[in-house]
Design a protein around this nucleic acid. Sequence first.
RNA 1: GGCCUCAUGGUCAAGCGGUUAAGACGCCGCCCUCUCAAGGCGGAAUCCGGAGUUCGAUUCUCCGUGGGGCUACCA
Length: 479
Amino acid sequence: MEKVRTRFAPSPTGYLHIGGLRTALYGYLFAKQRGGDFILRIEDTDTTRYVDGSVQIIYDTMRDSGIMYDEGPDIGGNYGPYIQSERKAIYTEYAKLLVEKGGAYYCFCTPERIAGLKDSEGNVRYDKHCLKLSKAEIEEKIARGEPYVIRQNVPTEGSGTYHDLVYGDISVDYKDIEDGILIKSDGMPTYNFANVIDDHLMGITHVIRGTEYLSSTPKYNLMYDAFGWERPVYIHLPPIMKDAQHKLSKRNGDAGYEDFVNKGYIKQAIVNYIALLGWNPKSNVEKMSLAELVERFSLEGINKSPAIFDETKMKWLSGEYIKEMTIDEFKKLALPFLKKSEAFGKFNEDKLLNLVKTRVQILSEIPEKLDFLTDFKEFDISLFVNEKQKASVELAKEILPKIKDRLSALADFTNSALFETLVALSNELGIKKQALLWIARIAITGKGATAGGATEIAELLGKAETLRRIDFSIELLNK
RNA sequence: GGCCUCAUGGUCAAGCGGUUAAGACGCCGCCCUCUCAAGGCGGAAUCCGGAGUUCGAUUCUCCGUGGGGCUACCA
């Protein structure tokens, strides 16, 4: 059987956005699952939209996310070059061939003439004016240096049908397709031409791309047929939406892969989440590594309807990945974010990491989770009130000095010793340990909620700082 | 406007003629607990509308409505 070859063909017009990455991912999964090859091709035929540095971003993003290609501009392969701007001569050659075969023709019409073709609705549609030109006339105009484009010669009657593996049979009447430009006046091909030539020459067996090409595919098929080439299998993918009516796009400034990584999303979670946008594994397992995705991916699970990107769920997945990491793995990833915390360097690093590991979903949340360690200042004493724990301001006033005495006398300032001591004290006082521990925690943090309990925090703060804070709180209560 | 296409809770979605219409995120409640998390248990919440086909439509057909795409010398 023929070896499966899929490709991802982005335009270097900026960063690689989530939608593009998902297209790449599916192409990768499909090929890898079948032992095939996944190819990266850069579609830079529109020089006006080219953004400097974006090719490098594409390489980096794909490597970083693990969606690695087998052939591409930076790694080579047997079907290069893999950058369209370097394939100009190839397109010219095939355009001429297509003209000979009757599938295309030279057009010398000026933009002004074409603008004059507006119908009553204001729509412009090319009238095949130059199709009538004789070979001699064409040669003469070219010799004279007249600018020209090459247009596709689309039949005026009939229709084109193909079978998409996701959307089923798609049929478009040729009368609804215009004679589009294949080669621009600057000699560069348009996507409409280059994709056909490249996919064929690069041996692409399955074309996986967004639905924006669903209705233009019949005109590509016309070219495959004219050349006498076998058409590839088509797999069109539903769009990823920002909300019900807007596609996720960089135009709207929507976040890309890099942005999410910078925000501290776990990379595997990003890939895992986007795999789930438009595809379902037909099982209740949602958390899957790239290798598992390769194994489980199936065309049957691809959805036809647009999917709205839900950052909240991706965050949850990111948190799931964090929870299953070992502390060492977590440390490696979390350190750059931990360094942004005021607490970094002032407290035991491993303890900080442990405190935060089950409490963050994305790494950028780390500093805020630790702010209570360094941000201790005057607070609202009503925080001492907690009905459920039976804690009150009065009780705090009464027992805080006793807590202080007990802790001052304590030599072993570890979590377990602290806990034992304070529980013993609560028993002596005949109050719930929850009440005492609540008051202690408020006294040393001034925060209603903290990542960690009273004794855990006291150990981290150390004896001196813990006592200082208790003094501060006693003073605050007596004001 | 024309053409292509899509339509189940707030979101991702299962379903493929007969179901108490899965599951996940989020939300709410309870349990656990040294607060918050984590963990456990439970709950609220969905078939766009109208015709048809059928004994029976979420499921099939058509129409409508709504969304997306294409209609560029952009991809």
